[in-house]
């Protein structure tokens, strides 16, 4: 019983990651609205950031700044990596939104199904 509880609660960060990831993924696949798709994509990426950040945490560790009395530090490298990844994900989202604006200008809609219908007709 204890083991199960530990598995569910002790690894709660992973559960959050998985739930976020699936939420995002589902939104990307199931929503015809392009903006919602992009929001889903963003959530999907964010879940991975949390995965990275949470693994940097070391029990009892402090911020990685050398100071008196601190023996254990959190690993700073994942933070740095994720800073980069956030920039990438921001750029992706910005570009995707820009594309959606252009699509809206060209098709008059941001609904994927409608776009598909228009493409078929053409």
């Amino acid at each position: 019983m204890h083991d199960v509880m530990h598995g569910v609660l002790g690894l709660y960060n992973y559960w959050i990651v998985i739930i976020l990831m699936m939420t995002g993924f589902y939104t990307v696949i199931a929503r015809p609205n392009l903006v919602k798709k992009i929001i889903g994509l963003f959530i999907f990426q964010t879940s991975v950031f949390i995965l990275f950040i949470s693994m940097a945490k070391i029990e009892g560790g402090t911020a990685p700044i050398i100071s008196e009395g601190a023996r254990i530090y959190s690993n700073p490298l994942p933070h740095v990596l994720i800073l980069t990844a956030i920039v990438v994900s921001l750029a992706t989202t910005a570009l995707a939104l820009a594309l959606v604006i252009r699509i809206r200008e060209a098709y008059g809609t941001i609904n994927e199904d409608d776009i598909h219908v228009q493409d078929e007709e053409a």
């Binding site: 990307v28 798709k37 999907f44 991975v48 990844a85 992706t92 959606v100």
Partner: peptide, 27 residues
Amino acid sequence: GRRALTAALQYLVMGTIGATFILIGIG
């Protein structure tokens, strides 16, 4: 042609999912 836009967005979505998968793997 406007289909270039949808093609690019389609590639963006799939490409980002792919890249994120790679990121998970690396993590």
